[in-house]
């Protein structure tokens, strides 16, 4: 029969957080790592339930009650600060000699190694504690690297999205952005107006003075359109010298006509590029969402397009508002004009 002291010696090697209690529930011996949690208060001699409390079974107050839990997983806490949580397993000794209770930190191990300055020597060689700590650190480092990559990718994605919706030459929105916004507006309830603006004589500027002059003129025209519209309005360059301006919540024909006149007036002012005088103008067609029962994006674009066609037909530098009568006339004019 193994002596109690021999047993304690073996346990100290195999499970350095053991507690050996005698038949009266008093602590006979504890493992070195467990004693390290309360270095100034020797545990042997005290009642087990004086040093530890059971977390889920608070009513257990005698050794007999504790022994009835043999084989079950115990949740305990060491009394006093810090309140380290422990897991435990109890095995009774034969002949009512008491019991062996093996404790471990469970998930509280991260705090425990810090709070008690534990080292790898405090864990048995078969304990996975050190591997767990290693994994936590290694995974945290890997996670941190992934997180920083995610943040950079997110930044790059936002920049790319912004770029995808921007006309790089003028800084205006591009066709794609306009399509998205128009689709959105068409499916909503808010009324809006859509202007289709086409620069007149732009091609001749390009042909006479070169692309640099053409680019300059486009940038100046973009500036004028941004200046003559509200911050909430959307100005998009949808083709070489074609622009669309969307006015949300604005369907007042006289206001829109006034804006169109100002745009045309300003765009007709000569622009000077490296000493050359570039003269352009603009024709504008406007359609209102309220001119349709259930406006569709393509329908409104087409209506503004027809009004623009009419403005050009009337001799450029004009603004024309769409009407359903105009729609029919333009359609018949177009079908007559293109018999082939």
């Amino acid at each position: 029969m193994i002596e109690i002291d021999d047993l304690a010696g073996m346990l100290g090697t195999l499970c350095p957080m053991f507690v050996l209690v005698d038949g009266g529930g008093r602590i006979a011996q504890v493992g070195p790592t467990l004693q390290k949690l309360r270095p100034d208060q020797p545990m042997p001699g005290k009642d087990f339930l004086e040093v530890f409390e059971l977390v889920r079974l608070r009513k257990v107050s005698t050794l007999a009650a504790l022994l009835s839990l043999a084989g079950a997983k115990l949740h305990l806490r060491i009394k006093g600060e810090p309140h380290t949580a422990l897991k435990g397993l109890i095995a009774p000794l034969p002949n009512g000699q008491g019991a062996v209770i093996n404790l471990s930190f469970g998930i509280s191990i991260l705090d425990a190694v810090r709070d008690y300055a534990l080292t790898s020597a405090d864990f048995s060689g078969t304990d996975l504690a050190i591997e767990l700590l290693y994994l936590v650190e290694a995974k945290s480092a890997a996670m941190e690297a992934s997180r920083s990559l995610n943040l950079r990718l997110q930044g790059a994605m936002l920049a790319a999205e912004e770029q995808a919706y921007t006309d790089m030459l003028t800084g205006l929105k591009n066709r794609r952005a306009m399509d998205v916004l128009l689709g959105h507006l068409a499916s909503g309830d808010a009324p809006f107006a859509l202007m289709h603006l086409d620069l007149d004589f732009f091609k001749s500027v390009n042909d006479r003075y070169g692309h640099a002059a053409g680019d300059y003129v486009l940038q100046q025209a973009a500036c004028i359109m941004v200046e003559e519209t509200r911050n909430d309005d959307t100005v998009a360059r949808v083709g070489g010298d074609e622009f669309v301006i969307i006015f949300k919540h604005l369907i007042d024909e006289s206001v829109l006509s006034a804006i169109a006149s100002r745009l045309i007036d300003r765009l007709r002012q000569p622009m000077i590029f490296e000493g050359s005088v570039c003269q352009i103008s603009a024709s504008i067609g406007t359609a209102l969402s309220t001119q349709f029962q259930a406006p569709k994006a393509a329908e409104i674009l087409n209506a503004a397009d027809q009004a623009l066609y009419e403005a050009k037909r009337m001799g450029r530098s004009r603004h024309c508002l769409y009407s359903s009568f105009l729609g029919q006339r333009v359609q018949s004019a177009q079908s007559q004009a293109s018999p082939h």
Partner: peptide, 12 residues
């Protein structure tokens, strides 16, 4: 420092 720590987990 992170990597040094991970290596030191190798032993005492």
């Amino acid at each position: 420092e992170d990597l040094r720590r991970l290596l030191r987990f190798g032993g005492d």
